[in-house]
Design a protein around this nucleic acid. Structure first.
Lengths: 267, 267
DNA sequence: GTTGCTTCTTTGTCCGACAATCATACGATC
DNA sequence: GATCGTATGATTGTCGGACAAAGAAGCAAC
């Protein structure tokens, strides 16, 4: 074993095609919304078969870099959607045996800081959105599934209020992993709903008053409450997060206040 | 517009095939390492053409759910690799116009908490890894590119020491986005290397002594130093993070101490 | 034990084909 | 003039078949 060679790797054509197109999108040479040539044309340009192009397109599609706009046949360049990216992260974490404790601990670390930041930089529109999201939670008290979803939605709006896409995207997988167990907790612990509502109100007040420290504290308490609720509900903290019912916000539904784009164009 | 219908969406076959296989992996019905049947066999079972199966496989492949093991032709079930998942997140953030400030702010929020947690739960092996990573940085003082990479590596080891895959995976995109600008900073600011080395030493000491508060403080200072370095280097904080030279840890290289699996089997 | 050969399997890629669907243009109808 | 129906062309989704290249496995030869 004195002479060693690096394993030379010839990538298959479909991956090189995907890489080539992907690189152009990443470098912004192809802009968002721009339409890709038809498959036959791509095949001609790359001098490969259409089947090869199609395999490449499937890869780009699942990376969220290209997308078919509703009612159109041609692919167009897209920016990966927050929730689909987060779904990939959730899947990965799921398969890596993440426990409820792991998710809860991450929330403990992230959310209070997030609330603190939001309290500092939030604007009037953020406040309105937060109020709306909180009201939506308060209005929905029947279905535990819905309620859990609304709680997650409040977190989303809060993250959005930080005006930092990095934070919003870092949080999203946590919410997706949290929701299933949260649903069970809300279902089993009667007093949970009221306690959550109270926390929401306090958060809204502190954000309104730009009271960073207060927001931080109330968020910390909010998250700590989750843990107590889990204990009462008899949810094992060391259990792997539930794979069955992963909460994926419906990508086709634009009716929520949830931000589809990570950052609004005007900022 | 009184009568409305939901748009009925018939998914194409290749996506249903991918979904079907993917669901079985997610539900752990197919276990990691298990080999998938050959494409022709899959085509037979799903009663579709092999081309269709191949398109489905490309999607699963790019989601990291299946993988070809070195020197094997058959696909085998895999767990998405931390760094490939994070690369997807990085791409998304890049295209969403994330600025250096956004990344730095997220680091400010996440890293001190991460250090605090690591100081609490780290074990002897973590300490050794951290020491090794820090030594690797100290040894490499020529190439700014290498140096930036080693700094990121220290962060990775630290996150690993929290024994929480969620935190490790949340951090990874930040590191990938940070590295290019960090490289420039280290290159342009002579005193940066020494300051980083000092921070590393303090971090190591505090972790050794399980001094959570100390670790938190030194990490906060470490990150704050980055900002000062950026100012000195004349890096515009409002600039979009550099797309060209995204730092992707070489996936084929297992020589680092960096954890390939998010969670070690024994935990 | 290594080397060389053969056979089989499986993938990567190609070619050609066709129905279904969308875009567009052009009349026909009210 | 606006709406509808229809013809036409472009494009995708899917299919069938084909073949070279590369591992895998077995077996013989050295």
């Amino acid at each position: 074993m004195s002479v060693v060679f690096a394993p030379l790797q010839l990538e298959p054509a479909y991956r090189r095609v995907a890489g080539s197109i992907g690189a152009r999108i990443l470098s912004r040479e192809l802009r968002e919304g721009e339409r890709l040539p038809p498959e036959t044309e791509l095949a001609r340009q790359f001098a490969v078969n259409r089947s090869t192009v199609r395999e490449a397109l499937r890869e780009l599609e699942s990376r969220g870099l290209v997308q078919r706009r509703a009612g159109s046949k041609l692919m167009s360049v897209a920016r990966p959607h927050q929730q689909s990216v987060a779904a990939g992260v959730s899947d990965a974490l799921l398969l890596h045996d993440v426990t409820v404790r792991d998710v809860w601990e991450a929330l403990t670390i992230l959310e209070p800081q997030l609330a603190l930041t939001a309290a500092r930089v939030r604007n009037a529109a953020d406040l309105r959105q937060l109020q709306a999201a909180i009201a939506a939670y308060a209005a929905e008290s029947a279905d535990a599934r819905q309620a859990a979803h609304r709680v997650a939605e409040v977190f989303r709006v809060l993250a959005h209020a930080t005006h930092n896409p990095v934070l919003a995207l870092a949080q999203e997988p946590l919410l997706q992993l949290l929701e299933p167990s949260l649903r069970v907790m809300i279902d089993k612990v009667p007093q949970a709903r009221a306690r959550i509502a109270t926390a929401h109100q306090r958060l809204l007040e502190t954000l309104r008053g730009r009271d960073g420290a207060g927001a931080q504290q109330w968020m910390a308490r909010h998250i700590r409450d989750f843990r107590r609720g889990y204990d009462v509900a008899g949810i094992d903290f060391e259990m792997r997060v539930n794979s069955q019912a992963l909460a994926r916000p419906d990508p086709g539904a634009a009716r929520h206040s949830s931000p589809g784009s990570l950052r609004e164009p005007g900022t």
